[in-house]
Simulated assay, not measured.
Amino acid sequence: MGNALRFLYGECCSKPITTGSGGGNWANQQQSHGHHGVSTSTGGVSTLGRDIHQFELTSQVPEGLSKHVVSSKKAQANWYGKLSEAWAQAVPPPKSPEEVSTFVINTLKRHKKVDVEGLLSFYGLPLTQPAVEVTTGQAPPVANGAKYELNTLPVDEKAVADGDTVTVYVSTLNPREAACVPQTVQQAAVERAKARAQKNYTKADALHKQITDAGYRMLNIRNEEILARKYRIRLRGIDAPESAMPYGKEAKEELIRMVVGKSLKVLIFDEDRYGRCVGDIYCNGVFVQERMLKKGLVWHYGAYDKRPELEKWEKDARAKRIGLWASANPEKPWEIGMEEESS
């Protein structure tokens, strides 16, 4: 038995066991120990250690776990086998609930997210990896002076509103996102997966509405359900024609061709009056605003962005009379009052 498991089992055996799920006792635990019969302090840590040790002796998983996960007993046994192997090699051993939660997530990261979350909930452990604390009091620097960086899931075609606005989703497995997912959203995601497994789609749809109302969504990525946070992005430094204006359709179609089905890097600099994040978007290393300007499909929004390279790319497109610059005097959306909030 490795150092980590010795620690966990030692903690369990050196104190009176008042919480836990192993040995068939979970159903008899007092409600004061939390929603799943395990306290959110170190009780869940020691109980998990005890259950892993019990699995090594009997090859049996805890009674009651199946109420919190969707996978079979055989799959559950596989988890405990992996956890036992990993804990035997852990140096130093995880001690706090947060450390043990992170260890479980990393060990079982190839398994269904809903099962990992169900397992953690069963022991009263944190459902997400804790954020890394920044002791300087300042966030780490991001390229070009941006406030923060987003790395998105693949973009859906319906997410492109027009030539300068796109909705993106970021997985909550991302450490930055994991630190701020509301507990109600996490629990709704777990309960929704159980409802779908039971083919209770009415309940599953109601839970998903709860998730989307909070600014999140369950996305199916490569046959895996992923909880993701929604961000509406206004492309920084450019302004596209509105849909009813000349080249409005072409601008939207070009943005769709560039980003749909791809994961994006988004550098966020600000927020506009509509609550959209204002940022630079990169797709497979290509700066999206640069491509849109060079193709003559958008204006450089010089009133708000003074970057000389954007101004140059617009001038080059004007000189070549491509895109909207085929007209001697194309309509400007900010002058005719057509700039509206994109849905």
Results as ranks from 00 to 15, higher is better:
residue 167 T to W: 11
residue 202 T to M: 09
residue 130 P to I: 04
residue 180 C to Q: 15
residue 205 D to M: 14
residue 215 G to C: 13
residue 120 L to S: 01
residue 133 E to A: 06
residue 101 S to E: 03
residue 229 R to G: 03
residue 168 V to G: 01
residue 197 A to E: 11
residue 181 V to Q: 11
residue 113 K to V: 08
residue 112 K to V: 06
residue 220 N to R: 13
residue 149 E to T: 09
residue 191 E to S: 08
residue 165 T to Q: 02
residue 143 A to C: 10
residue 106 N to C: 03
residue 226 I to R: 13
residue 180 C to R: 15
residue 193 A to W: 03
residue 217 R to W: 15
residue 182 P to C: 15
residue 210 Q to S: 14
residue 98 E to H: 07
residue 153 L to E: 07
residue 212 T to I: 09
residue 233 I to G: 06
residue 139 A to L: 15
residue 132 V to F: 07
residue 166 V to F: 07
residue 102 T to F: 11
residue 158 K to R: 12
residue 99 E to S: 06
residue 176 R to A: 08
residue 228 A to F: 04
residue 143 A to L: 14
residue 231 Y to V: 13
residue 205 D to G: 08
residue 132 V to S: 09
residue 201 Y to E: 06
residue 194 K to N: 08
residue 113 K to T: 11
residue 149 E to K: 15
residue 194 K to C: 08
residue 182 P to M: 15
residue 231 Y to F: 14
residue 152 T to W: 04
residue 122 F to L: 14
residue 231 Y to N: 14
residue 181 V to Y: 13
residue 169 Y to M: 10
residue 203 K to L: 12
residue 124 G to T: 04
residue 206 A to K: 11
residue 197 A to S: 15
residue 227 L to E: 03
residue 211 I to Q: 00
residue 194 K to S: 09
residue 187 Q to N: 13
residue 161 A to V: 08
residue 113 K to M: 13
residue 104 V to S: 00
residue 191 E to D: 10
residue 140 P to M: 04
residue 164 D to W: 01
residue 163 G to Q: 00
residue 100 V to S: 01
residue 157 E to D: 09
residue 209 K to I: 07
residue 118 G to K: 08
residue 98 E to G: 01
residue 144 N to I: 07
residue 100 V to K: 01
residue 203 K to S: 06
residue 100 V to M: 11
residue 204 A to L: 08
residue 209 K to P: 05
residue 230 K to W: 14
residue 131 A to N: 05
residue 163 G to L: 02
residue 165 T to G: 03
residue 143 A to Y: 08
residue 185 V to I: 09
residue 183 Q to K: 15
residue 121 S to V: 02
residue 183 Q to L: 11
residue 102 T to M: 09
residue 133 E to C: 12
residue 189 A to P: 00
residue 99 E to A: 08
residue 169 Y to A: 05
residue 120 L to W: 00
residue 160 V to A: 05
residue 215 G to E: 10
residue 159 A to K: 05
residue 184 T to G: 12
residue 136 T to Q: 06
residue 190 V to P: 00
residue 99 E to I: 08
residue 167 T to P: 00
residue 211 I to W: 05
residue 157 E to S: 15
